[in-house]
């Protein structure tokens, strides 16, 4: 019975979520009244201007920030329980590879911490490096790789331990557009192959529309959700899809949403 329900069960569920930071200048409402439910296998992008709380929301899912109100469930547990159960892999804005470890050593890091056997570590490192197209680079040190390759290695590191959820915080933000296009394409293939649930923070409209099954538009002060857009695009997406009317229509709606959230400010 559980199997039949699995597709419908929300993997991530936020109800009335709010998060207020206490700063020296008084409390800052980073998030307020966030209601969102993400099902297994979805690719959900969070888009909005800086200060809209998209990164804060992702960090709250990862239990790197503690919400001050509302409820947040990840895999049916509290966010912190999910973190302890190693429910997700997290990809940061910068690759953040350890300079003293080789690429393989970096990918191995979570496996060592989680106590995988040595042979299991080797097998998994080889598998995920292949998945991100970095076979043969395992013995290199991070500084010997380009920025795009480093970021791919950090994705491999997040994939290595089989978490069902992948949380990505502007992972391609620092890369040039050509590299970003290619990595977007590869990320979609990877998502299709692994069936993971992905939460993806970005401030690029084309990136959000190209990648996502659902786009969450957010707005700042206080950080909140202003629009949730179901993408009509098929799961199979060549890069050229970005020139189709459907794509442009979705992008337009995202842009409108962003503008509406901003209008009272300027």
């Amino acid at each position: 019975m559980k199997d039949t329900l699995q597709g419908m069960e929300p993997v991530i569920e936020a109800k009335g979520l709010g998060l207020t930071f206490q700063t020296n200048d008084g409390p800052v409402q980073a998030l307020t009244g966030v209601n969102l439910s993400i099902s297994k296998g979805e690719f959900v992008s969070f888009i909005g201007p800086s200060g809209c709380g998209k990164t804060t929301f992702l960090r709250a899912i990862a239990a790197l920030e503690m919400p001050t109100e509302g409820e947040l469930r990840v895999n049916g547990m509290s966010a912190d329980e999910a973190r302890r159960a190693r429910a997700y892999g997290y990809v940061f804005q910068a690759a953040g590879l350890y300079p003293w470890r080789t690429i393989a050593g970096n990918v191995k890091l979570p496996l060592e911490i989680m106590g995988f056997s040595n042979t299991e570590q080797e097998v998994r490192v080889r598998k995920v490096l292949e998945l991100v197209d970095l076979s043969g680079f395992g013995g290199k040190f991070p500084w010997q790789l380009s920025g795009g390759m480093q970021q791919r290695a950090s994705i491999a590191r997040a994939l290595a331990f089989d978490a069902d959820i992948l949380l990505m915080d502007e992972p391609f933000g620092a890369l040039d557009e050509i590299v970003r296009d290619r990595l977007n394409e590869e990320l979609l293939k990877l998502w299709a192959r692994t069936g993971k649930t992905i939460g993806f923070v970005t401030h690029s409209i084309p990136e959000a529309v190209y990648l996502s099954t659902r786009i969450v538009v957010m707005s700042p002060r206080p950080g909140r959700i202003t629009d949730v857009i179901e993408s009509p695009l098929p799961r199979e997406r060549p890069l050229e899809i970005r020139d189709t009317p459907e794509f442009i229509a979705v992008a337009h709606r995202v842009r409108e949403g962003l503008r509406a959230g901003h209008s009272y400010e300027v």
Binding site: A62, Y90, F92, I113
Partner: peptide, 11 residues
């Protein structure tokens, strides 16, 4: 970021 990364592994 580096300490956060290890926190996500529950290290």
């Amino acid at each position: 970021m580096q300490t956060d990364l290890l926190r996500t592994y529950n290290a």
